[in-house]
Design a protein around this nucleic acid. Structure first.
Lengths: 257, 257
DNA sequence: GCTTGACCCTCACGCGACGTCAGCCCGCAG
DNA sequence: CTGCGGGCTGACGTCGCGTGAGGGTCAAGC
């Protein structure tokens, strides 16, 4: 049944038995993880039964994803196997969720590439109204095209599909509604409600478009009262809202120490 | 709002804006993936707006898990993005299932390590009867301990927990039942039914214990009629079964061309 | 004008587990 | 004696940077 060649196997035979490559066995020898007890006079590696046992354990641990050094520890009796198993499990599950997120990101990108992204500005106009026309986009490019924030924003929104823009719009509407509510209930821009709305505003831009520090946020607030187009947008929602928003943003920025 | 330093950003600024390290930018420069258009007279890298745009795209692709070389291709306009996305998705999902299997393997190993593996031979005796006692195991070790097959078998069964052994027993019973049915219905060992049972037998050992080629399988069949203990086991199931099994194994081996 | 500290530069090795030559040796069959 | 199928030992390549080492640059404060 066994070819009893003195019970010593050469690398090739061992490699085939355990479904690993010869190079792998060489490597294990190099790093001292598995050194065959014997060598033929010609220098051939000869594996004994105990070597095979050790290799069997190594192969099992490798399938469990352990590193070679870690395996060496375990074989030396140092370290608790159960603890290593737990750590490994934790690491693998972490990687699993990362990969799952990657898949959804890829699906997202695929959808976007397949033509699900808003055709030019058509659908965006439907969503955001006529204030969002080509001339606006062109001017924005003109004014901010060379800022990092604009670049970042372009990179992120490039993969937004219609559903994303709908979420963006919903969030934006919610923030505006919060501002209007605070204003109309007579609360000052320094009230918690107004400042919370300002913070929500900052987060919205930060999450959806580009990183916004508190000072950058104040820059935006300033613009809302100095740039006629932005002022108009806010005034259409409620009289005095543009200035109110700016003040709330300033108060919120001051609130952060 | 923007610090307009001639619209040229240094590595540090760019790195912070895109949440990458300076080293990464150096690396992209080294491999020619992103070479800043300009350098200061002191040799400082100066990134222009178009450099930032390119970097933005690179960062997005990186998040999607593409390799740098692949990204270079895409940026050069070679290769279809959608196709790359699909390939990437396929690769990631493959890796996902691998990792899922790894987790179950780890859970398995954990269960086994936590004491769920059969205490010595107690539970095995319950399952397999008294034929499975220590003297048997010792003798097996004695006879086959130095064969690769034995080593492989030990490595695999070492992580078997009670549930695994129950599955093993169920499979074994099913195979034996098939042999008995074929024998008692008067079909010859060369019948399809008998040969199929032999093949199931080989697969069972192959999957649960160690790799079994057809010739090795015939070696086992031979042993069933020459080793009294094995013969007895089969004869207890049905008179003449040991010889019948051997013949079926030989027929099945011959069937494979 | 000088020092300080924060940045920037260019090498160049390290990582993890082998894959992949290259150049050479051994043993056995014809 | 000559192949041919192994086995041997270097040693470099992989992938995307991390991490020093050793040394300039620049704006600010003294």
């Amino acid at each position: 049944m066994t070819e009893t060649t003195q019970d010593l196997l050469t690398v090739g035979q061992v490699a085939e038995t355990f479904a690993v490559t010869v190079r792998t066995l060489h490597h294990y020898d190099e790093i001292g993880l598995l050194t065959p007890r014997e060598r033929s006079y010609a220098g051939y590696r000869l594996y004994t039964a105990s070597d095979l046992e050790r290799l069997a354990t190594i192969v099992v641990y490798r399938r469990l994803g352990f590193g070679l050094e870690e395996i060496a520890e375990l074989l030396a009796g140092e370290g608790d196997l159960v603890e290593h198993l737990r750590r490994q499990r934790a690491a693998v599950t972490t990687r699993l969720t990362e990969l799952r997120e990657l898949v959804t990101a890829l699906d997202h990108a695929l959808e976007a590439e397949m033509g699900n992204r808003p055709a030019t500005t058509e659908e965006l106009k439907d969503l955001f109204g006529d204030g969002f026309d080509e001339s606006y986009a062109a001017e924005a490019q003109e004014r901010w095209g060379d800022t990092p924030a604009w670049t970042q924003s372009q990179a992120r929104t490039a993969t937004y599909i219609k559903a994303d823009w709908e979420s963006v719009k919903a969030e934006m509407d919610a923030v505006n509604a919060a501002f209007v509510a605070a204003l109309e209930s007579g609360e000052p821009p320094t009230s918690a409600a107004a400042m919370d709305a300002a913070e929500a505003h900052r987060r919205h831009i930060n999450d959806r478009f580009y990183d916004v520090s508190y000072s950058m946020h104040q820059g935006l607030g300033e613009m809302y009262v100095t740039d006629a187009r932005f002022t108009q947008t806010y005034e259409d929602l409620a009289p005095g809202l543009a200035a109110y928003v700016k003040a709330a943003i300033d108060a919120n920025a001051a609130r952060q120490q």
